[in-house]
Computed example of a mutant assay.
Amino acid sequence: MSIPNDLTALALPTGSRLVADETESRLSLDLDGEPLIRLHLASEPELLVQLEQGFDHPDGDALHTACYWLFARDPACQRLTWQLDEVPVDALRNGLLVATGTSGQYRCERTLFWQLPQPWLGQSLASSYPQQMVISSGKRHPLRPVKPRGEVYRRFDARLGAWISLRTLDIDHDLERFNRWQNSARVASFWQEEGSLEQHREYLDKLEADPHTLTLIGCFDDQPFAYFEAYWAKEDRIAPFYEAHDYDRGIHMLVGEEHHRGPHKVASWLSALVHYLLLDDPRTQRVVAEPRADNGKMIGYMQGQGFYCEKEFDFPHKRAALMVLGRERFFERCELA
Rank of each mutant, 00 (worst) to 15 (best):
R261Q: 13
G218S: 07
W269C: 04
H141K: 12
D236Y: 00
V146T: 13
Q132T: 13
A66L: 08
V266W: 06
R110G: 05
V255H: 03
W181E: 08
R38S: 11
Q78S: 14
H275N: 01
V146R: 04
Q78V: 10
D32M: 11
L48D: 03
R327Y: 10
P291G: 08
R140Q: 15
A72L: 04
C67R: 04
L39N: 08
P35I: 10
A320S: 15
P291T: 06
N183G: 10
D59G: 11
Q199G: 14
C219D: 09
E198H: 11
W163C: 01
S196T: 15
Q53E: 15
A20S: 14
P130N: 09
D294H: 12
D21A: 12
D248Q: 07
S2H: 12
N5H: 10
D172I: 08
Q199K: 00
P263W: 03
E229L: 06
G161S: 00
Q123W: 01
R144L: 15
D280P: 07
S25D: 14
G300K: 05
H259S: 15
D6W: 09
S128M: 01
L12D: 11
L7R: 04
A20M: 11
D6T: 06
G161W: 06
R159T: 12
L254E: 04
Q105K: 02
M323Q: 07
H275Y: 01
T284A: 13
E335C: 09
H317P: 11
I135R: 12
P75N: 08
W114S: 06
L41V: 07
Y129R: 06
R319H: 15
G60D: 12
L29A: 05
I217E: 03
P119I: 04
L31F: 01
E151V: 00
H275A: 05
P211W: 03
Q105R: 13
A76P: 12
A209M: 04
M253H: 01
W191K: 01
R261G: 12
R26K: 07
D205K: 00
R180H: 13
E229K: 02
F55Q: 04
C309A: 12
F315G: 04
I251R: 02
L31Q: 07
V266Q: 09
Q192I: 09
S2K: 12
L273G: 08
T102R: 14
L70Y: 06
E328T: 14
